[in-house]
Design a protein around this nucleic acid. Structure first.
Length: 582
RNA sequence: GCGCCCGUAGCUCAGCUGGAUAGAGUGUCUGACUACGAAUCAGAAGGCCACAGGUUCGAAUCCUGUCGGGCGCGCCA
């Protein structure tokens, strides 16, 4: 261990404290042990060699692309080269000389290339992973790196004035899977949907609904300017007439208020159904109108006013957001006395913090990025850290059909709604397509390809792996073949390249989940799913399971069973079904 | 004009916060079903990582500039 009392080491201790140590998976624990062993070796070597190091960077391990480069590699020697003023290869040799391999499964450690340290591990650790997966079942992959931090993830939040579009659908898939990933990584996540049911759009929607209602009643009316002329409003008005036939007997003001409330409520209910069909359930549906009802808009303005951040100009009230890095100050109460959108949003985010969340994540459409600066300013003005508020911007979705752009015009009500999308391509394919690409990258979504049940469609590639395994296990059961547990099977018989690759791939899951969660990159999981399936398919063609001699058959059955478990975990995170048959 | 995202194989995209010979799907070409599901597998071809500088042992990755594409910049939401 460390010699104590040497001040030179204080910097070292800080740089190599691993959160990963507290997680439960074999792979992550092993990685942490190896990192620790390497960091120890660096310290010993540094002490012995008298290197003038200011600090030791985190020892990063990577899985080399080339198998010839071993199972794990680190570039730590190259990173130290400048401070130590020594050639990287020489440093690497010194580090290896001081490396204590006990408990690390390291078989060989060698210097390679410009100064990499390549580690080859004993297969024993892979068998350890096998037992780990069998023990944990579908809990495999979960960790506690999030340390229970309370996260509020707000996403979709489409206006309750019309059907949801494909960007909403993308947001739903990305948000839901991100939440799944963060939960699996040990964060305490709440999914929330903000219902914009109090603003001008909601009002116009209510007026449009009322106008259609009157038309249906045979009353000639002028359709509201900037209203919603699309057919779904008329359809909804028909329903309203059946449910509330005596609406027009009320005073005009009550009619309008009723339509606004009834219409938005009904639209929210439709959205909720669509999202549920997409596999997305929210913990909280937050109504903007509740903020108005409880006077939160006034309160947030008063609060900012007390801090001297509100001023009057041109008959309006302004928030001095430029003091917190915004491009320009923002109006919070218009000269007509009505609050602006940001006022409600400030009150809303204030409320989020006061409900005890440590960290807020919002997923927004590409048209909202100009809004980040002012919201961040508001967060800071309310006394919260700028980095406790995070916005994930999704880029646009271009819909194609057989490679041809699908033309859409929202104004004319001609666009592919989320409902139609689900009808045309189904939940599994839609989610997978949305999750294939990085959130900040444009997405080309070919409806025809996604709907196609063929080899062209990448969704089936992953699901097929699961169905194939299920078929093997069914066959085994019919033939009364026992599928042994990983503990009782002779795992040492798993020696071929394909078998070891498959276990290795599964061993990477816990880390993949942590990376995807922390970097907010759910597409990594879609990618991983494909790689896992690919590794399995390769195993399948090269290695027979049933009909081998009993010991090998047993070991492979355990392997296949574990693969099925891991596929279920991954597909579950993606919100995609894992079929027994296809 | 200012801000953000993007530019990597014919096409659609990855590239692990700077590493070893830049990857995958799709498309093209060549092979593999008389044992567990061929919605699969094995292989080939395909690249000036938009361009020009800079930072360093090392750049697709970081910085600056140019060109090209997308989006945003309301007392709308």
């Amino acid at each position: 261990m460390l010699p104590t009392g040497l001040s030179v080491y204080t910097a070292f201790v800080r740089t190599y404290s691993f959160k990963e140590v507290i997680v439960m998976s074999v792979a992550l624990n092993l990685q942490a042990r190896i990192q620790n062993a390497l960091a120890d070796a660096v310290r010993q070597a540094s002490l012995a060699g008298g290197w003038a190091l200011e600090a030791i960077p985190l020892v990063e391990l990577e899985v080399p692309r080339e198998k010839a480069h071993g199972d794990l590699a680190t570039n730590i020697a190259m990173q130290l080269a400048r401070d130590a003023k020594l050639p990287p290869r020489r440093i690497a040799e010194e580090i290896i000389g001081h490396l204590n391999m006990e408990g690390t499964f390291i078989e060989t450690a060698e210097v390679a290339g410009p100064g990499f340290i390549n580690l080859r591990l004993s297969n024993e650790w892979l068998y350890e992973v096998m037992r780990d997966i069998a023990r944990q079942g579908t809990d495999y992959g979960r960790s506690r790196v999030g340390e229970g931090q309370r996260i509020m993830l707000e996403f979709v939040s489409a206006n309750p004035v019309g059907p949801m579009n494909v960007v909403n659908a993308r947001a739903a898939a990305v948000g839901d899977t991100l939440a799944n990933l963060m939960e699996a990584a040990g964060y305490d996540v709440s999914r929330e949907y903000y219902v914009n049911d109090a603003g001008r759009q909601a009002g116009l929607f209510g007026l449009s609904l009322l106008a259609r209602y009157k038309e249906l009643a045979g009353i000639a009316v002028e359709f509201p300017e900037d209203g919603y002329p699309a057919p779904y409003v008329t359809e909804m008005a028909k329903v309203l007439r059946e449910e509330v036939p005596d609406l027009l007997e009320k005073p005009q003001e009550e009619q309008e208020a009723f339509c606004k409330r009834w219409g938005t409520d009904r639209m929210v209910a439709l959205q909720r159904d669509d999202l549920a069909a997409f596999g997305v359930e929210f913990d909280v549906w937050f109504r903007e109108r509740d903020l108005h009802k409880s006077r939160q808009l006034e309160k947030v303005i008063d609060y900012l006013d007390d801090k001297g951040l509100i001023y009057e100009q041109d008959g309006a009230l302004w928030f001095a957001s430029t003091r917190f890095g915004d491009d320009k100050d923002r109006v919070v109460v218009k000269s007509d006395g009505l609050p602006t959108y940001i006022t409600a949003d400030m009150a809303y985010h204030w409320d989020k913090y006061r409900r005890g969340f440590d960290h807020l994540i919002n997923i927004w459409g590409p048209d909202h990025h100009g809004y980040i600066g002012r919201m961040s300013a508001a967060i800071q003005a309310l006394g919260y850290e700028a980095d406790s508020f995070e916005v994930l911007l999704l880029q646009l979705v271009t819909l194609l059909r057989h490679g041809e752009k699908v033309r859409m015009s929202k104004r004319a009500g001609e666009f592919v709604s989320m409902t139609e999308l689900l009808e045309e391509v189904g939940k599994d394919a839609a989610r997978y397509f949305f999750l294939m690409r990085a959130p900040d990258s444009h997405l080309d979504f070919d409806l025809a390809l996604a709907a196609e049940q063929s080899q062209e469609n990448p969704v089936y590639y992953v699901q097929y792996a699961h169905a194939r395994i299920s078929s093997i296990l069914r066959q085994a059961e019919e033939d009364s073949i026992q599928c042994p547990s990983a503990d009782s099977a002779d795992l040492g018989l798993l020696q071929s390249e394909q078998e070891l690759d498959l276990i290795m791939k599964m061993a990477q899951l816990p880390e993949e989940i942590v990376l995807a969660a922390q970097r907010r990159e759910p597409h990594r999981m879609a990618r991983y799913a494909h790689e896992l399936a690919s590794t399995f398919h390769s195993f399948y063609t090269h290695c027979r399971v049933l009909g081998e001699d009993e010991a090998l058959q047993g070991a492979r059955l355990a392997l296949v069973q574990n693969t099925k478990t891991v596929l279920q975990v991954v597909l579950g995170l993606l919100g995609i079904s894992a079929p027994e048959k296809m």
